[in-house]
Simulated assay, not measured.
Amino acid sequence: MTEAPLSDPKALRALSHPFRWKLIQLLTEQGPRTATQCSEKLGESVASCSYHLNMLAKYGFVTEVEGPGRQKPWQIVRGRQSISPEGLEGEAAMAAEAAAMAYLDQEFERTRERLRQREHLPEDWRKSVGTEGHIKFLTAEETAEYLAELQAVLNKYDERRTDESLRPEGAKPVRVFLSVTVATE
């Protein structure tokens, strides 16, 4: 199921900060974490992590997990963010574009870093990771159909993200990034 794209300019601006995407990815891949744990993992100060987590919480992207103790872990509220300037105007369209560019910058940075570390992976993992690109000559309708088919494949195993009991032994967070673009004339 595809979520409606975000349209609130303030929420979109909250996602235009690259570090917030790092926090979202950390919480998505590793589950609930305190600001201190985020700081240790991302190399940013606790105060900065706390500030950015609070900004993400203000717009409903993360929430604190209730429990004992003073430091409460943060968790992801929604596993997917849909961002598009389509149908938006003015400030909202600019905020959507800024959020999308921040996401792409962070995604490419993370992909480059993980590919640099590929040699440190066990051989069975090295065979399964990398990048690939294809050119297809399709109509707009064929592209929509093709994308829907790919989305169905991408949705496989989604339940494992939120339910750790479904993860087989040896499962790791595997990032699959899909980009569909069309050349303009």
Rank of each mutant, 00 (worst) to 15 (best):
T63K: 12
R70A: 05
F108G: 04
V62I: 10
K127D: 06
G67C: 12
L115E: 00
E64W: 01
T111H: 10
G90P: 05
G79T: 15
M101F: 00
E141P: 05
E89Q: 13
M101Q: 11
T139C: 07
E119C: 10
N54K: 08
H52N: 13
L88V: 09
R112V: 08
G87K: 07
E142T: 04
R126V: 14
E91A: 14
P73H: 05
R126M: 10
G69C: 06
G79V: 15
A102V: 11
F137D: 06
H134P: 01
E142V: 00
T143P: 00
V77K: 10
S84N: 06
S50C: 03
C49T: 00
Q75G: 09
E86N: 03
D124Y: 08
I135G: 02
R70D: 04
I135D: 12
Y59K: 11
V129A: 12
D105I: 11
I135H: 12
R118W: 13
T63Q: 11
E97Q: 14
E113T: 13
P122W: 08
H134D: 12
E132G: 04
L121Y: 07
L88N: 04
A96T: 01
E91D: 15
E91C: 12
E97P: 01
G133C: 07
V62Q: 00
V62H: 00
T63N: 07
G67H: 14
S82Q: 00
T131D: 02
S48A: 10
A102Y: 01
M94G: 00
K136V: 09
E107T: 14
Q75W: 04
S48D: 01
E145F: 03
S82N: 09
W125C: 09
L104V: 11
A93E: 12
G87M: 15
G67V: 06
W74F: 07
K136I: 06
K136A: 12
Y103P: 01
G130S: 13
H120Q: 14
A93G: 03
G60D: 02
Y103E: 02
A140T: 03
Q81S: 06
E66Q: 07
W125S: 06
G133P: 00
E141R: 10
G90T: 11
D105F: 02
E123N: 14
K58R: 15
E142H: 05
Y51G: 00
K72C: 08
E141V: 04
E107C: 08
P85M: 08
Q106A: 04
I83V: 15
F61E: 02
Q71P: 03
D124F: 09
V65N: 03
T143G: 00
T143L: 04
L104C: 13
Q71N: 14
E132N: 11
P68F: 02
R80I: 12
R110C: 14
A98R: 09
L104T: 14
R110N: 12
S48E: 01
F61W: 02
S128N: 10
G69Q: 05
L138W: 15
P85C: 08
F108M: 05
R78K: 03
D105M: 11
L88T: 10
H120V: 05
Y59S: 11
A99V: 08
V129P: 01
M101E: 13
V46F: 12
T143C: 06
W74I: 06
A144I: 09
A95C: 09
A47G: 14
G133E: 04
M94I: 02
F108A: 07
P73C: 10
E119P: 05
E141C: 04
A140R: 15
K58G: 07
K127W: 01
